[in-house]
């Protein structure tokens, strides 16, 4: 019976759940909830060099990197400044889930990249449907935002010194 159950399990999904466990936004969520995200969310493969979204565009989706890598860059004085390079287990575009501001930077697939896309309405429905998930995800989001603010404050103080 146990052998049959193991045979019926989807190994590929287990590996992907392990990647989702690294995502800061989903810290503390049970693996069944992460499996739900994997089943429900839309997956898309981007060829190397394809622009995922551009700076200034309106956007309402969060992207999670499942495989490959993504370069985040911003226009500064007529040139593109690379802000970060994100590998599997990273995510970007999270502010689109909270406010209606345009995209702050541009995201480009560096190599062949697989992304999991979460649209705002799914996120809202997920939070409304389950208080436990809702409180964990919002807590994670707040702590990540406070970390950004602290880091920015440190950078500004360093610059002044």
């Amino acid at each position: 019976m146990k052998k049959l159950f193991i045979w019926a399990l989807d190994r590929g999904k287990d590996q992907r759940v392990a990647i989702l466990q690294k995502v800061g936004l989903f810290k503390g969520l049970r693996s069944r909830v992460l499996m739900k995200l994997l089943v429900d969310l839309v997956e898309k493969e981007y060829p190397p060099g394809e622009v995922i979204f551009s700076e200034g565009e309106s956007g309402k989706a969060l992207y999670i990197v499942l495989a490959g890598s993504v370069v985040i860059s911003k226009r500064q004085n007529n040139s593109e400044k690379v802000l970060a390079e994100l590998a599997a287990g990273s995510y970007f575009g999270e502010l689109a889930l909270i406010d209606h501001m345009p995209r702050y930077a541009t995201a480009v697939a560096r190599e062949k990249t697989t992304l999991l896309i979460m649209y705002k309405s799914y996120f809202d429905d997920l939070l409304q449907g389950n208080a436990a998930i809702s409180s964990k995800v919002l807590q994670n989001m707040v702590s990540l935002l406070s970390e950004y603010i602290r880091r920015k404050h440190h950078n500004e103080t360093d610059e002044r010194i």
């Binding site: 200034g56 802000l83 970060a84 995209r103 702050y104 920015k152």
Partner: peptide, 11 residues
């Protein structure tokens, strides 16, 4: 236009 108040990797 993109907002000009932030400089972090929040996209």
């Amino acid at each position: 236009e993109a907002p000009k108040h932030s400089n972090e990797i929040i996209v």
